[in-house]
Nucleic acid binder design. Sequence first.
DNA 1: TTGAAAGCGTTACCAG
DNA 2: CTGGTAACGCTTTCAA
Lengths: 355, 355
Amino acid sequence: MTDRSRPTLATVAARAEVASSTASLVFSGSARVAPSTRERVLAAAAELGYAGPDPVARSLRSRRSGVVGAVIGERLAYAFSDPVSVQLLDGVTEVLSPLGVGLLLLPGDADRHGPTLAQLAHVPLDAVVYATCGLEDDPALEHLQRRGVPIVAVDGPRLDDLVFVGIQDRRGTVELTRHLTDLGHRRVAVVALPLRLDGTRGPVTPERRARVHFLDVRERALGVEEVLGPVPLWETAANAVEEGERAGRALLDVPADERPTAVVAQSDILAAGVLRAAEALGLRVPEDVSVAGFDGAELPWLPPVRLTTVVQPTTEKGRVVGRAVTDLVAGRRPDDVVLDVHLSVGTTTGPAPRS
Amino acid sequence: MTDRSRPTLATVAARAEVASSTASLVFSGSARVAPSTRERVLAAAAELGYAGPDPVARSLRSRRSGVVGAVIGERLAYAFSDPVSVQLLDGVTEVLSPLGVGLLLLPGDADRHGPTLAQLAHVPLDAVVYATCGLEDDPALEHLQRRGVPIVAVDGPRLDDLVFVGIQDRRGTVELTRHLTDLGHRRVAVVALPLRLDGTRGPVTPERRARVHFLDVRERALGVEEVLGPVPLWETAANAVEEGERAGRALLDVPADERPTAVVAQSDILAAGVLRAAEALGLRVPEDVSVAGFDGAELPWLPPVRLTTVVQPTTEKGRVVGRAVTDLVAGRRPDDVVLDVHLSVGTTTGPAPRS
DNA sequence: TTGAAAGCGTTACCAG
DNA sequence: CTGGTAACGCTTTCAA
């Protein structure tokens, strides 16, 4: 004795003895419909247990699905272990949710650095946010452009046809590096985020460096070198505390006169790992070695130290992305946005040790 | 000189001089179409830059959108600061992604503990996962049921019409508590997850306790009491390290003869906070006080200690949810699932101090 | 203010 | 193996 099948607008209209077009007007709300008619329709809907117009049918006409894709370059567990990614998406949903638009997760997996074509092709999309990935030579990109799905690229790349939202990676790192040179540091090493998502780890060769996939990674490296000239880069395989620790051990477990007096990590997560390595090696921070990060992430577990870092407005960046998406969906073409960053000096950087 | 408008299946069919129904067959792949015809169609599609059948139109016919909602009871930044939530969704996408199904985030905001009706109503949904919330008296629930959207409830509640996927909360806590009593502990306090999402914090009164909203929270409390009888519960306002620390200070900053010899936190995140409180108060763990958690979460920043905890198979739980969703979408009605947990004894529990 | 009719882009069914 | 035709559930002119 369950329902035969779900009621449709036509069913409701029939019950209320109006045309389906009239019923449609009622549910679209802001129309001129006689109050009495409106009530009849609503009553009929209630009696039939009608849940409102079918979103899919509605989308077919309106050419809008209420779904915005978030392309994640890795599996969820990795991407979201970084509070920066999470805050970014938080900002995006903060803007999109009130508009009745949802974020559809399109993660990669262990092997693929993004969703497959099969995943993309079957899913309705009003727009797409490229959140944690390089894209460029991505087959998905071509598919989306064919479909006419507008794209917002966060932190890169900068391409025509794509709206770019990023931060002043270069300027922030320059400011940070000046802070270090002011403190007397000359021997500085960089713990870099992955240059490409291929699991490579270790000192960065010039050849490797030439193939860097991520704009922000490149800029953050150049920022340091703009002040200090060439510095050694140590690449990590992922943005994770363990990776930072591994890099930290490699860089710091050497004779004191070869050891960098300061380590600049390209993320706070990596910096946390470097701090752990220093502790394990019996090095005091900042007396023996200074450590700095990037992001200004909330790491509630980090105290008692306060990390020196370049703070980016992560949640605001997400909101900006959300607004860009809104514009795009409405047919407007928003400008690229580059957000400000600022240096936050904590307790992990101090004068360079005299050698 | 941009494209006039996107090509449709009809355009492609016309160009290839076949019926649109035949062209459709080509794109649905597994049909009997003459190879020569197939190639003609594919060629026409390529020339026109056709991106494949429109997902929305396809959905309208097939009654399937490829979108599964994930209802999150808070804003993203909070929900995803818990690695357990993230791993759960990771497991879900691991199963769903290869099927071309995406997870649509439906978060609440600061005020609302879940998406609004307006958010839900406009979005296509094949099924919904209730991931971090109590639901029950949720208006969204009624809407979804009207629409006939099947629901998987993770960790509760258990209702008819809902598929339940959970873990042995009770049994796990019993085992943990036995471990503590074996070590001689009798004065045990519980740091509880929020009983409801209303920002309450502090000792739990019987009235409050009667109104607990979350099944797992209730079960984990009962597990302790099944062994020890009534114990004091201290409720936190959120699953966060700071909240655990706050609770830990309240419970531990008392004269030694009133102080619990062991604290059972209902999550590892909260336990981490309790550890911080103990450290701040100069109490040694486990010599002065034992601390235990729940979840078996990966907290890469927690070492050097290894938390005694009840390990749940979080990612596997996500996969189970993913499979349940798959069944539901295919029209099957999967059974409820309760997954095993096990005790993992770390370095944070030890013999009760002699008093 | 309401109704009739024409799509939106596909797929599914039934002939041929 | 291929073509015609009828839905899918709704919105949106255009008339009345």
